Amino acid sequence: MGDGLGIDGDVVALTARLVDVESVSREEKRLADLVEDALRGVPHVRVDRDGDAVVARTDFGRAERVVLAGHLDTVPIAGNLPSRLDDNGLLWGCGTSDMKAGLAVQLKLAATLTAPNRDLTYVFYDAEEIAAEFNGLARLVDHHPDWLAADFAVLMEPTGGRVDGGCQGTLRVRVETTGRRAHSARSWLGENAIHKAAPILAVLAGYQPRKVEIDGLVYPEGLNAVMIEGGHAGNVIPDSCAVTVNYRFSPDQSEAEALDRVRDIFAGFHVVPTDSAPGALPGLSHPAAAAFVEAIGVPPAAKESWTDVARFSALGIPAVNYGPGDPTLAHTREENVPVAAIVAAEQKLRQWLTG
């Protein structure tokens, strides 16, 4: 098989090639095929595939195994393809930051690390940017947990070149109100469920989020309305309303504890959970994590979002986030990544895995 991506060449050019292969969530097959084809041409890795997830593993008999993982998919394109490299050393395009620069680093290392000091598992998976039920890493956890077995994992999510430990948990609930429908010309005969939602919004406006310190990292929480539904017609008093609330919680809480907290905050209202995912503790005290942080040479920080490190944590594998992209540019029309950041990420990982 040929290597249409050229994974053993320049890592910046490889990033651009990956960006130019459209891979919006649920449409990753072409990119997964290219990644699989390229990796099957690497003699020192074994390659497996499940759906549009590709896993490549070395087997050198090293004392420790590390996972490098990243998702193939992007959010929908916003007029920001094909990629372009400007005179300031910035590579622009959908997925440059989140997270095809990280994928390029993984692929370059997979192709060229022929004598690493640790065995390596390279994971490329689908559908991270959409509902958890489609997540390719979750599918691998269910179908092939043995493919993911390791002592430590690095998720190549964009972090601006620093190590982000752990991640927040996320919980979504519907806080519901009910009333009595009536003609709006005789509103006194009804009970307006939308009006009854005013105290919910007041609670949210006055909420003071916690800031929780774990292993020296500070995780700021958030409790926000992200959607409100209610109403039937322009002349009807509504008898139902629901405010969807997203709670981003510190990893010192379980999903059940987070739900209990939200129910306490909205005591007296009907609270219906719709989606949740656990957080992950930093795990920076693990020897492999400590060695990684030292190798990167930048003080670590808390991951202020949910990421798939939580899936590795649930498997008992300490995991961190580290990637060359800027997380504040993820999902934007202006998404870009500095060329120097891609090169630096590859060099630092290579030094850690060979030094």
Rank of each mutant, 00 (worst) to 15 (best):
A344N: 11
S250T: 14
A193G: 03
C94W: 02
A277E: 12
V212A: 04
L201E: 04
G70M: 11
Q106T: 00
E257C: 10
E128M: 03
R261N: 06
E28C: 10
W188C: 08
I237Y: 11
D264E: 15
T307S: 14
L137G: 14
N192F: 13
D142M: 00
L81E: 02
P300G: 05
V175P: 13
D275P: 00
L120G: 09
G51K: 12
G4T: 08
G6Y: 08
P282R: 07
F266D: 13
N246L: 05
T121N: 06
D215K: 01
L148M: 04
G61L: 12
T159K: 09
A56P: 11
L171V: 02
G79L: 01
L204P: 13
G79M: 02
A198R: 10
R17W: 10
L137S: 07
H71R: 14
T177E: 12
E255Y: 06
P116N: 14
G222S: 15
E22S: 14
V45D: 01
V245W: 11
V218E: 08
A340K: 10
A110M: 05
A193V: 06
L5A: 07
A111W: 10
G216S: 11
L5K: 08
V45W: 11
V298E: 14
A69P: 00
I342D: 00
A63G: 10
N80Y: 15
A310L: 05
L107G: 07
I296M: 13
G279I: 09
H270Y: 03
L259A: 05
S83G: 02
G216Q: 10
R84L: 06
T354S: 15
G231D: 03
D164F: 04
V154F: 06
S25M: 05
R17M: 11
G297Q: 03
G2R: 14
L14R: 03
A205L: 10
A314F: 03
P43H: 00
L72F: 13
R210P: 13
K108T: 14
T307E: 04
P220A: 08
K196L: 12
V67H: 03
A13C: 00
T15W: 03
T244E: 15
E176L: 08
E221T: 07
V309Q: 01
V45F: 08
V154D: 04
F312M: 03
A38D: 11
T332D: 06
D87L: 01
N224K: 14
S285W: 01
R46I: 02
G136Q: 06
A288I: 00
I317W: 00
K108E: 09
G283K: 07
A290C: 00
T170P: 02
P324G: 05
A344K: 04
N246A: 14
S97K: 01
G190W: 14
R49E: 07
V293M: 03
C167H: 07
P199W: 13
V236R: 13
V309H: 15
L109P: 12
L281T: 10
A153Q: 01
L85V: 05
L137K: 13
E294V: 07
P300H: 05
A69C: 09
